[in-house]
């Protein structure tokens, strides 16, 4: 049945037992995102050590897809570089926006391939991307702060 294809066991597991949930200190960048069509929200924080993501913490209100996607995200990015994390995000975005036409990159996505079924439901794509958008934004904010701090005044 279609429903089981969409709600893979992995998704339901993450939904029921989300990883790294809650907002933690210290952090370097924070982002708040909402899905304007349904009102779902996430506040997400990233902590970095140099270029390595050391923690992602979040507080989210949303459906199983958005909650599980955010939980899986933390597994995929914590301990990796920002660059690697964002390229994983690119693979995820490509898969999720493909309407099911693109073979997911299992190496890059690991558990996140479970969301391949979501790609067939355009209305749910935003749900799956909510946490990722917050991650990208939070990382971007860290970098903005850094460049503010590091750039000599005359270069501005």
């Amino acid at each position: 049945m279609q429903l089981e294809q969409m709600y893979q066991e992995i998704i339901l597991d993450h939904y029921r037992n989300p990883h790294r949930r809650g907002l933690r200190e210290p952090y370097d960048g924070e982002s708040f995102q909402v899905n304007p069509t349904c009102g779902d929200e996430v506040t997400l924080r990233v902590a970095l050590d140099g270029d390595t993501v050391t923690d992602v913490s979040y507080d989210a209100m949303g459906c199983s897809i958005s909650q599980a996607a955010t939980s899986v995200l933390t597994d995929l990015v914590v301990g990796r570089t920002v660059g690697d994390s964002l390229s994983t995000m690119d693979s995820f975005v490509e898969m999720i926006q493909s309407r099911g036409e693109v073979e997911p990159d299992e190496d890059a996505l690991s558990d996140a391939v479970a969301f391949a079924g979501v790609a067939k439901y355009p209305a749910r794509v935003k749900c799956a991307l909510l946490g990722w958008m917050a991650f990208k934004d939070a990382v971007g904010r860290v970098r903005e702060d850094d460049s503010d701090a590091e750039q000599p005044v005359e270069a501005r």
């Binding site: 049945m1 279609q2 429903l3 349904c38 779902d40 199983s64 897809i65 749910r124």
Partner: peptide, 12 residues
């Protein structure tokens, strides 16, 4: 059960 998820079941 979040509304989106219930909606998906109803849709199915």
């Amino acid at each position: 059960v979040h509304a989106h998820d219930a909606g998906q079941v109803l849709d199915s």
